[in-house]
Every structure is written in C-alpha cells, then in structure tokens.
Design a protein around this nucleic acid. Structure first.
Lengths: 249, 249
DNA sequence: TGATTTTTTGCAGTATTTTGCGAGAAAAGC
DNA sequence: GCTTTTCTCGCAAAATACTGCAAAAAATCA
C-alpha cells in the first residue's frame, strides 16, 4: 500500500470519528504501529490533525473542546438571554437565580426597563446593580460556597413572603420525564421554594443540557410554564416538552 | 480512551453542570479515581476549571474577582487589614461592612481561621466565600446601587435578631468631635443598626480620613471600641481618640 | 537491465508517559 | 473523640514514544 494512500485513509478516519487510535489503525491498515506513528507525525506536521499520545484528534474536535476561553457555550447563552429579556415588562417583580446565562440576561437588559428583581445570587445581583432603572433586592441567608447563592431556611422563609410575577431559573438537568433535577441538596431546596413562590416559572437551558438527569429532583414539568432554549420552538428535540404543556420560546 | 478525549469530556461535563464529582466521573469514564483526579488537576492548572475537594467547579462562578491594582491607598489599607485580622479568633461571629479595606481584610484572612461572617456588602461576601473555613451569611434587602450593600428596613430588622462579637466597619468620616459621619442616609441607617447590634465595634480608617466630617451623623466616639489606622497607636494625630476612650491599634 | 542511491518499513532496545494501587496524611462529617 | 472520605505520595506495570539500524522497496541513472 502506498504511503499517500494510507495517509489519506487515516485522514478520512480521523475526520469521521474525530479521533483515531494508533493501535486500531495499525490493525486496520496492516502495517506496524511505528509506520502509523510516522504517518500521524507527518500529518500532524502538515497541520491536518492533532497528534496526541496513543492516536490523533481531528482539528474540529480540538476546536470544540478549547473554545471555552470566556463563557462556555456563550453563543447559545446569548440567544437564550435575548429571548428571556423580550418577555420582561415594566413593573414586573422578577425572581432570578444564578448561573452564567442569568448573568448574561442581567447584562443585556434594555436600559429603560423598570423591573424589580429579587435574587439569591451574588454575581447576578452585582450585574443587575449596573442597570440604571431597575431595583434589586437580595434575599439573604447563609451563602453556599460552591453555588455562590443564598441557601437555607431563611431564604425559604423569605420566599414565602413574596409573590413574583415571573421566576427565571437556570437548570443543571432538564428531562422530559424526570423534570428539573440538580445535584446539590441545598440548591434544590431553594429552587423548590422559588418555584412555589412564583406565579409563572421560566426555565432556560442550552440544548446540551436537555435530557440530562441529576441526582435530586427539584420539580416535575407540570410545575413549569415556559421553556427557553437556543433552539427554534419547532425543533424536534423539544416535542416532549411541548406535550408536557410547556410554552416554548 | 485517549487522555485528551477524556479531559474534553470532563470539561464539557463541568461546563454543563457547573460542578462534577470525582466519583461520578470515575464511574462514567470507567477509569480510576486517581486518573480523574490527575485530569482535574491538569485542567485546573490550565485554568479551565476550579478544582475542589471531591470534584471540580466551572469557572463561570468565579467571574468577579479581586483586583488589587485599582484600590486607592493600597499600602495603607493592607496595613490596616493586617491589624484587624490579628484580632479575629476562631468561633467569633463578625459583622463586616463593605469598602475596599474590608475587601482586603477578607482577602488576607488566615486560611485556617474559623469565623462566621455576617455582611451586607456584595463584594465583601464574594471575597469571603473564597475562604475555605469561614461561613458567610449575607443580610439581604434592597440593594443600594451606589454603595452595593443591603439597605432598608429589612436589614435593620435582621440586625436586631443577631448579636455579633465584633463589628468591623469602614468609615468615610471620622472626627474626634463629630464621631462617625457619612453622606448617604440609607447607609447611615444601616450603620447605626450594625453598631447597635454588636458587642464591640471596630472602625478603621486611613489617616487621611481622620478629622473629616460628612453631613449625616452615624454615632459618637462613645459608641465605638477600637480604632485601627495605618499609623502607630502612639502617633500624635490619634491622641484625641485615645482620650475619647478608644482602644488604638 | 542492473547497479546505485534514496526512501520506507519493521524491529529491538531504551526512554517516557500513563495508569492503578496501597499506605499514610489530611480533611470533613458526626 | 471517632469514622469516612478524599488527597498525596511512591511505586510498579502497562502502554506508548523515540532512537538507531538494517532490510526491503522504490526511484534514479548509466
């Protein structure tokens, strides 16, 4: 087999599977691992693949995994934030949780919007304070080191005293069957209280998070009203959620 | 499975769920916990995740961090912070206000100190959360856009429910005759409540702020216990304060 | 065609990296 | 206090990479 022939086969293999193992190629091409190694070396020097120990990766794979210079999936989150902001109206009382998408929402609020925000997240509160016309009320309590939000009985109690028009909540796990799930018990407790307090509940999640389940249940889909993702509402992935009665945006 | 592949999956997992457990990853990736631990270590050294005991966190939580270059009179404030920190003991309940000196205090706390902090300042709370062994309780309420602290009746009411061992307070105006003064009515209200709640009150100020008077009175020197400046306690400037019965540090 | 040169390939030995494991230390929970 | 979990360290086995080399293959040229 010609060297060029072999290398083009390797290249194709890499681009199909995003990765190849040295041992697989050696077997499939019926040449020694050394030869494959040298081929990968050359392809790598030519900039066509990324050589790593034990095999090689496609360039697109590499792009995908290293795009997290700023916020992970920033594009998607911006889209979501835009959709959510379009739902806000003057005079609303809005309960908003933490997470990078909510941070983005707070960042892109129209300057003339007059909303009163309730939040339990330090960073969301910080960002909201930069808004010229909105009031921000922080629901205090014991602060969780990991989530950087207020947790504990104080928060739950405070949430029983209010009746926000809308709750904007990010989620770590959203599944058509399991509903909203999370992995931190304290966070779950607070989220439950937030949902119970609010007249309408909006959850947002990047499509990647759909159909993922964590260990502790927050609530079922029946307790939610609106689902926002970066996808078009007509997307097939969202069918189960529409069937569950959620308004898709 | 290639190492790069594994790390990329881990990174993805962290970014989707904001946190991952070592044990979960070990199970999901079918490698030993040691291997996962080493992967997390590497990703953490590369600055892509935050390694914590038992797992890792997404970086997006840690967005607002401390910047020391833009603090005015950084040297003086560091000295003051050092003096204040030396007064803290395990088990104390400490009420701490906002401002850059308090931020510096929070930053240089000895890692093994076990103190419960009460605070009304978003940035102080953020910084305190980075401390491994201290609890942080945020006293919520309406947030002041300018001071970035909780203000209003809720805060005053909450402060009536606690009895901290020590109150650490920055001040804009400190004068031997006028006592503590400030310019924002809402802030003054909260400061009064903080002082009233606490068993001991420590105020700190850089020498520049001594003998300056603002428009609204917070309290007289008789309600204070400790004064910390960057100066030596024997400094002549401080004589009037010693005569007023303050402990100088 | 046949001799010569160049390139490619496989192999053996050695170096390096990765991985899992066990023991003890440190931290967290109780 | 104790127990459990997690971390750290060293180590050894396995996998992978590198080196030099010689044989095989291909290319070149008279």
């Amino acid at each position: 087999m010609l060297k060029e022939e072999r290398q083009s086969l390797i290249l194709r293999e890499v681009n199909i599977h995003n990765k190849v193992l040295l041992s697989d190629l050696s077997l499939k091409l019926d040449v020694s691992e050394d030869t494959v190694r040298r081929d990968l070396q050359e392809l790598s020097e030519a900039g066509k693949i990324i050589k790593v120990r034990g095999g090689a990766l496609s360039k697109s794979y590499q792009m995908y995994s290293y795009r997290e210079n700023d916020i992970y999936a920033y594009q998607e989150k911006t889209v979501i934030a835009g959709k959510v902001v379009s739902l806000l109206r003057d005079g609303m009382l809005v309960l908003i949780s933490g997470g990078s998408t909510n941070l983005e929402i707070a960042r892109i609020l129209p300057p003339d919007l007059r909303v009163t925000f309730l939040t339990i997240s330090l960073s969301t509160a910080m960002q909201l304070l930069d808004h010229p016309n909105s009031d921000v009320i922080f629901i205090g309590g014991q602060l969780s080191k990991t989530a950087r939000i207020s947790v504990g009985g104080e928060v739950v109690h405070a949430l029983q005293q209010v009746r926000p028009d809308l709750c904007i909540m990010g989620t770590n796990g959203l599944d058509a069957v399991a509903g909203i799930t999370d992995s931190d018990w304290e966070v779950v407790t607070v989220k439950k209280a937030m949902i119970r307090a609010s007249q309408k509940v909006l959850v947002h999640a990047i499509a990647e998070k759909l159909n993922s389940v964590q260990k502790i249940k927050v609530c079922g889909l029946d307790e939610l009203d609106i689902l926002v993702t970066e996808l078009s509402p007509e997307n097939d992935v969202l069918v189960p959620y529409r069937q569950a009665g959620l308004e898709l945006i």
